[in-house]
Structure formats: C-alpha cells, structure tokens
Amino acid sequence: MTRWRSTNGALLERRAAGVLRTAHGGAAWAAGPNTAEALRAALAVRPDYVELDVHVTRDGELLLWHDEHIVTPAGAFAIAAHPLADLLALPTPDGTLMTLPQALEEARGRSGVMIDLKAPDLYAPLIATLDTLDVHDALVCGGYVDTLLALKARRPDLPVSLTPDAAAYASFGVTLRRLGSLDAVTVYWRTVDAAMVEAAHALGVMVLAWTVDHPPVAAHLLALGVDGLTSNSPAVLSALRRHPAPGPGTDPRLLVPGYLES
C-alpha cells in the first residue's frame, strides 16, 4: 500500500475509498464553468472535489473564472484590472459570476474544492480566505510553484498539487524529489504512462489526470493506476463512484461502465 505524503484527512479518506472524482469547472454540462449554477449542479452529483479556477480582482477579491478576461459584446475585461463590483455587473448569460469564498461556503460539507490557480501572487488573498473561513477540505493546484510551497509552509495540512510545465515533465522524478512538500500532480491525461505513475507513487505523490470525458480514456488511466480523474462528464463521474483499484490482469474495458458502448 502506498504511503502518501499528504496528511489531509479528507483527501486520504476519499482516496482510500476509491478513485478521486473531480467535476471540472463545476458542472460544465449544466452551465458556464466556474459559475454558481455550474457549482450547484456539480454538487448534486456528489463528486469528491469540484475544480474551480481562481483569479484576483483589482481590489483583491478572488473571482472564479478560467481566462484572464471576461469577454462580453462590449469588450474584454481584464479581471486583474477591474474591481469585483464592476465585474459582477457584466452580462454572463451562461451563469452567475461567483467569488471563491461564496463557493467554499456553498460546498462546505458536501464536496472538497480543488482551487486551480490561474494567476501569480494569489498567496495572500487565498490564505486569508482559507483562514477566515476555516476551510480544511480544499486542494490547491497549478503551475505557480512559489505559491504552492508558500501555502504548504503556512498550512501543512493543505494538499497542494503541481501542474507541471514542459521542464517538469522532462525531469518528472527529479522534480517530485526536489519539491518534497507536493502532495499530488495534476497532469494532462495524454502525458500519463505507467512510469509516471510508478515514479509518483514511489514518493507518495498522487496522480490526478485531467480532463477525461470518455469512458475508454477513463478505463485506460485506471488501468495505469491513476488516483483521480477530472471530468466534464456526469456519466464518467458517476461510473467512477467508489471505484476500486484494478487487480492484476483486469480487462480495462470492464473498469468503466459504458466502455464497450463507446
């Protein structure tokens, strides 16, 4: 049995029960990603985590959105250049804009939140939010190594996951050994092979693959031994519920319902 680096009780309990299931951007099948409607629809599916992308506004508020700009018929509005009130007033017909504190409160007791850092220098507002709201059921991921390490130093129980860049992929094992406080890696599913999973598990690091929307891909990754999948598909998320690790010789086609019909 793998001895994980993480000491976060919620993460360890969920992983012990099965493959981690993360809803990408909330329920992207129901509403615009990172919106209030998408979050609420995702919570109804009861995933282990809801992945949400985070930026900081000009006045220091953490806003959920994937891109640096919110695009409307009137133009593209840079999140970092505008106060929260102005951004909330923008028309977003695919869903209601939401702040990270609002999302954390909505998800409390129902799902963990995977906070995906989409900008540098988010340490101060993020740690203030987690401390003020007394949030312990969260996982922070992204490519901003300095922010991840600072968060981990301040909150050792907070799981952090590196989203590798090309250099980190090229020296995967070395990177994980050098960054000894990482709990996980969030990796593009096409980069995953058995050697990656073996190298991560040898160091107690979980492998969380994104974004997996088709049963054959999910089956392939489960057979490789990944620890979690992020998906836009309610069918894939539901099929993964409390999914055991595959045994030796398991036919990957049997790991995810719907594979043979794909």
Rank of each mutant, 00 (worst) to 15 (best):
T7C: 00
G9P: 02
G9D: 13
L12R: 00
A16I: 01
A17M: 05
G18S: 02
V19W: 00
R21L: 01
G26Y: 03
G26P: 06
A31S: 14
G32K: 04
G32H: 10
G32N: 03
E37M: 07
A38F: 06
R40N: 12
A42F: 13
L43P: 06
L43F: 11
A44E: 15
A44L: 10
D48G: 08
D48K: 04
Y49W: 15
Y49L: 14
E51I: 09
L52P: 04
T57G: 07
T57H: 04
D59W: 09
D59H: 10
G60P: 02
G60T: 08
E61I: 00
L63C: 11
L64F: 05
H66I: 03
H69G: 00
A78N: 07
I79S: 06
I79F: 09
L87F: 04
A89Q: 12
A89C: 09
L90V: 13
P91L: 09
T96P: 07
L97M: 13
L100S: 08
L104G: 10
G109W: 01
R110V: 08
G112L: 06
V113T: 12
K118E: 10
K118H: 02
D121A: 15
L126Q: 11
L126E: 10
D131Y: 06
T132N: 11
L133S: 06
D134A: 15
D134P: 00
V135L: 09
V135D: 01
V135G: 03
H136G: 05
D137I: 04
D137L: 09
L139P: 00
G142A: 05
G143D: 04
D146M: 05
A150F: 01
L158K: 06
S161Q: 05
P164H: 05
A167K: 14
A170N: 12
A170K: 14
F172K: 06
F172E: 03
G173C: 05
G173R: 14
R177T: 15
S181G: 01
A184M: 13
V185K: 00
V187T: 12
Y188Q: 15
W189A: 14
R190D: 12
A194P: 02
A194N: 04
H201A: 02
A202M: 04
V207D: 12
V207Y: 07
A209N: 10
A209S: 15
A209Y: 06
A209G: 11
W210Y: 15
D213A: 02
D213I: 00
H214N: 06
H214R: 15
P215W: 14
P216L: 11
A219L: 10
H220N: 10
L222H: 12
A223Y: 09
G225E: 12
G225H: 14
G225A: 09
S231A: 07
S233Q: 12
P234N: 10
P234F: 11
L237M: 13
A239N: 10
R242G: 08
P244A: 05
P244Y: 09
A245Q: 08
G249K: 11
D251L: 02
V256W: 13
V256C: 05
E261K: 13
